[in-house]
């Protein structure tokens, strides 16, 4: 149990998908103009990561490895299968949200299908494979990673909303400023590097 909590804290703060590895930057920079849209996208990312991580783990362990069902080393199919799972899950989430909460669906708009190409989702699954987590650990990793990304995008959306009213030089307005802000936030998160949550037990 403590191990799961450690992995959650590690993937949410110390190895934050958005600010330590800079994954999911495209939607991060494009959607973070207002806190409202950032909030919706962050929630959707948490949910998709939480759902796709265990499924990808199951596929990787039971279908693709040589101890799995086929008995052959099919790891070269990993990328195709992972992305197919992610695309289908996002489609499923879109249908479920449209059925059960039409207002949320309307406010998320185009951002829901955009999660499929969010580097953070596929990157999270690939990290899970390289770190060789077991099933429960990968669930915790998914939740933590999503939560960390959510925090990062809310933070930068809040800052960008405020900085719109500051005297930024014209060529730097908008995108350039967002890059510099994200760099500063990444620097701040580097202060957490090297913390081992297990050492606090």
């Amino acid at each position: 149990m403590e191990n799961l909590l450690n992995i959650f804290i590690k993937s949410a703060f110390i190895e934050n998908l958005a600010l330590s590895y800079f994954l999911g930057m495209c939607s991060y920079l494009a959607v973070s103009k207002t806190v409202k849209t950032a909030f919706g996208l962050g929630l959707a990312v948490i949910f998709v990561l939480f759902v796709t991580m265990p499924i990808n783990w199951l596929i990787n362990t039971y279908l693709l490895s040589d101890t799995g069902v086929f008995g052959l080393d099919l790891t070269f199919l990993r990328l195709i299968l992972f992305i197919a799972v992610i695309a289908s899950m996002v489609q499923l989430v879109e249908m479920v949200v449209e059925k059960f909460s039409p207002s949320l669906y309307n406010s998320l708009g185009i951002f829901l299908p955009l999660i499929t190409v969010n580097c953070a989702i596929l990157g999270g699954s690939l990290f899970m494979v390289s770190k060789e987590y077991n099933f429960m650990e990968s669930v915790s990793f998914g939740l933590g990673g999503g939560f960390g990304w959510f925090l990062a995008i809310i933070a930068i959306a809040a800052i960008r909303e405020k900085i719109k009213y500051s005297a930024v030089p014209a060529p730097l307005r908008g995108l350039g400023m967002a890059f510099l802000l994200t760099g500063l936030m990444g620097l701040a998160f580097m202060s957490l590097m090297g913390i081992d949550p297990a050492a606090f037990q």
């Binding site: 760099g183 620097l187 580097m190």
Partner: peptide, 8 residues
């Protein structure tokens, strides 16, 4: 983070 600054 330096890549962010350079691109900015």
């Amino acid at each position: 983070p330096s890549a962010m600054f350079v691109i900015g």
